[in-house]
Measured scan of single mutants.
Amino acid sequence: DETGKELVLVLYDYQEKSPREVTIKKGDILTLLNSTNKDWWKIEVNDRQGFVPAAYLKKLD
């Protein structure tokens, strides 16, 4: 059920640097789980959840 889920576009590649982070690729469109922290957003990638720098993402309307 995708209702109410926010999507984000990945602006730059990011390689995870800790187990709490996930790797993302430029151009991916992913589900945003939590954006309350202005610097690190929690997203879902391939059934994995983790954090990436918010500056690497853009919210889609």
Rank of each mutant, 00 (worst) to 15 (best):
E6Y: 13
S35N: 07
P19E: 11
D39W: 15
E6I: 15
E16D: 05
A54Q: 05
N37M: 08
G4M: 14
A55Y: 10
V52M: 02
A54H: 04
V22L: 11
P19V: 09
E6D: 11
V52G: 02
T23M: 03
N34V: 08
D28L: 10
Y14I: 01
P53F: 03
T31L: 15
F51A: 02
E2G: 14
L33S: 03
S18E: 09
W41E: 00
N37H: 12
Q15H: 14
D28S: 13
P53K: 03
T23L: 02
E16M: 12
R48P: 00
V52D: 01
V22W: 04
T36C: 12
Y14P: 00
D61H: 13
S18G: 11
W40L: 04
S18T: 13
E21R: 04
D47T: 10
K38Q: 13
K25A: 08
F51E: 04
N46M: 14
L30W: 15
G50A: 06
K59I: 14
S35I: 05
G50I: 08
Y14V: 01
K58T: 09
N46L: 14
S18M: 08
I29S: 02
K5T: 10
V10T: 05
E6N: 12
L7D: 04
E21I: 03
K5R: 14
T23K: 04
L11T: 04
F51L: 07
G4Y: 15
E44F: 07
E2F: 14
W41T: 01
L30C: 14
T23F: 04
S35W: 11
L57K: 01
F51V: 07
K38R: 12
S35F: 07
E16Q: 12
D28E: 15
K25M: 09
E16V: 07
K42G: 04
L9F: 08
G27A: 03
E21H: 05
K38E: 12
S18H: 11
D1Q: 14
L57P: 00
G27T: 02
F51T: 03
P53S: 02
S35C: 10
G50T: 05
I24D: 00
L32I: 05
L32P: 00
L30A: 15
L7C: 10
L57T: 02
I24G: 01
E16A: 15
D1K: 10
Y14T: 01
L32D: 00
W41P: 00
I29G: 00
R48K: 10
Y56I: 09
N37Y: 08
D1R: 07
T36D: 15
L33R: 04
K58Y: 10
L33V: 10
A55T: 12
D47S: 12
D1H: 13
K59C: 06
Y12Q: 13
D1G: 14
D61P: 13
Q49W: 08
A54C: 07
N46V: 11
S18N: 11
D1N: 14
D13S: 11
T36G: 09
I43V: 15
V22A: 08
Q49K: 10
K59S: 05
L32A: 03
P19M: 09
I24A: 05
Y14R: 06
K38H: 12
T23W: 03
D28I: 05
T31M: 12
K59H: 07
S18L: 08
K42D: 02
L11D: 01
R20I: 11
L7W: 15
D61V: 11
D61M: 11
D47M: 11
V10M: 01
W40E: 04
P19H: 10
V10Y: 01
N37C: 09
E6G: 13
L32E: 00
L60D: 03
D13M: 03
I29N: 02
V52Q: 00
T23Y: 03
S18F: 06
L30D: 00
T3H: 14
T3P: 12
F51R: 03
K5M: 10
D28W: 15
G50Y: 08
L7Q: 10
E44R: 11
V45T: 13
D28A: 13
T3W: 12
L7N: 05
Y56H: 10
G27S: 04
A54D: 01
W41N: 01
L7A: 06
K17S: 09
D47F: 11
I24E: 00
N34W: 07
E2H: 15
Y14E: 00
L60P: 03
K5Q: 11
K25L: 07
I24T: 03
L11M: 08
D13E: 05
G50H: 06
T36P: 04
S35V: 06
T36A: 12
V10L: 01
V45R: 13
Y56K: 05
V8W: 06
D47C: 11
E16N: 06
D1P: 13
V10C: 10
Q15R: 10
V8Y: 07
Y12E: 13
E6W: 14
L11G: 01
V22D: 01
V45Y: 13
D39S: 12
I43D: 00
E2Q: 13
V22M: 08
P53E: 01
S35T: 08
L11A: 03
K42L: 15
W41L: 02
W40G: 01
K5F: 12
S18I: 05
K42C: 11
V52A: 12
P53R: 04
A55L: 11
L7T: 08
L9P: 00
P53I: 02
W41R: 00
T36M: 10
I43N: 00
T3S: 12
K26C: 07
L60E: 04
K25N: 08
A55D: 07
D47K: 10
T3K: 13
N34T: 07
N46R: 12
S18D: 11
D1I: 14
L30T: 04
N46E: 14
N34C: 11
A55K: 14
K59N: 05
A54G: 04
G50N: 02
A54V: 05
K26I: 05
S35R: 08
G50D: 02
V8L: 04
D28Q: 15
W40Q: 03
D47G: 15
E44D: 06
P19T: 09
E16C: 11
L32G: 00
K17C: 10
D61I: 11
A55C: 14
K17N: 10
W41G: 00
D47N: 13
Q15W: 14
L60M: 08
L33A: 03
E16H: 07
Q15Y: 15
V8A: 07
L7F: 15
N37R: 08
K59E: 04
S35H: 11
N46S: 12
L11I: 08
D39Q: 13
Q49I: 12
Q15A: 12
N46T: 09
G27F: 05
R48H: 06
